[in-house]
Design a protein around this nucleic acid. Sequence first.
DNA 1: GCGACTTTGTGAATGTGTGAACGAACTCAC
DNA 2: GTGAGTTCGTTCACACATTCACAAAGTCGC
Lengths: 217, 217
Amino acid sequence: MAGDLQKRRIPEATVARLPVYLRILLELAESKTATISSERLAELAGVNAAKVRKDLSYLGSYGTRGVGYDVEYLLFQMSRELGLNHDWPVVIAGIGNLGSALANYGGFTERGFPVAALVDADTTKVGRSLGDLEIRHVDELPQLVDELGIAIGVIATPAHVAQGVADKMAEAGIHSVLNFAPAVITVPDGVSLRKVDLAVELQILSFYQQHRHEQTV
Amino acid sequence: MAGDLQKRRIPEATVARLPVYLRILLELAESKTATISSERLAELAGVNAAKVRKDLSYLGSYGTRGVGYDVEYLLFQMSRELGLNHDWPVVIAGIGNLGSALANYGGFTERGFPVAALVDADTTKVGRSLGDLEIRHVDELPQLVDELGIAIGVIATPAHVAQGVADKMAEAGIHSVLNFAPAVITVPDGVSLRKVDLAVELQILSFYQQHRHEQTV
DNA sequence: GCGACTTTGTGAATGTGTGAACGAACTCAC
DNA sequence: GTGAGTTCGTTCACACATTCACAAAGTCGC
């Protein structure tokens, strides 16, 4: 009885896979596929079929035994669960090489994450335009967050200022941060943080490359 | 006796953290810090101290009880384990927005992953220069890999051609692939694959943002 | 050289994630 | 409506990862 309200806490590993399923379902919907089995979906997602069924079961019992999952319905439920039934405006901090590329990269807006603001600490950059956005000073974050309803902050600054920017974002009321800077940063409780570190990814690959021979002796 | 050779197989989770420790150690070395305790290193890496010790123990017993780890020595051992005692030339496939940014982003070369070649399938792009590299046609991959000793391929193409590029890379003898395209791709046995999907990261953040209220009732 | 203190390295306990297996629930042909 | 076939949802056992707790092994002051 006590555990009734909190019935389903979705495991982190599952949460990380849901967006992959979602993208596949979108493609299936586009190609007019009405239903999909866990087996086929698993194949497309590159995972085990049992895992797909378990993952989807956290969302509810949306499948039909003997048939599979209704693509449209599953899409609807999954979008709802992922919070994708509305847009989440994003601010990008640090308009250097990477920041500019991210700002120009259409993929964000397309998937419901419109780039609503750009900020930088460099006053020579402030005022310039990129696409149809003007670069603002990082100290204007609070107003920008407030006015534009910004929920997510993307950090594309040099490593040594990343923590400072994260602090400002948290202070401005941003609860989700995606960090591209090659630095470990911390955020207050209640703020979600994810990181993408390109060099780290390459180094992981390097490790396995290095050990490829030793491994399969 | 049989398990002697294969004494230490480093867990995946540990491998993913080693590059983070490495970066911190580099910073410590730069600031002339001679030794570091697992506790302090844990703090800097944002993890648990016991985890640090266990992770480092997979590399060997390089710490000194009562003292900590010698920064320089640990750096040396870790670099060796990660295969970072020499450069790993990289080819970037797909010179669009993201590909260009990656090519210009100095961070790769700086960390031992020089961008040695750029390829694209678009013949109007082939022949153009970016930085000091000329864009080559993707069909030249085998020669480029061979001549330049390329070990790692980075896919920054549109999703619908990513699998094809991955196939060509594997065929050309590349054993490590980093995929930025928003698509699930597969590679042959013996080839390592990692992915970075920006939209997926944002959607994961969106999930937790969506559930933030429900969670902490 | 001894005792107080520090810090590593690892065994054991706990928590999280995965995959096989199987009953339950559905479709379809006849 | 019955039987054969399909596919989901869930249980169970196991593998992997994390954290605690503590003996072992060092330092340092005197």
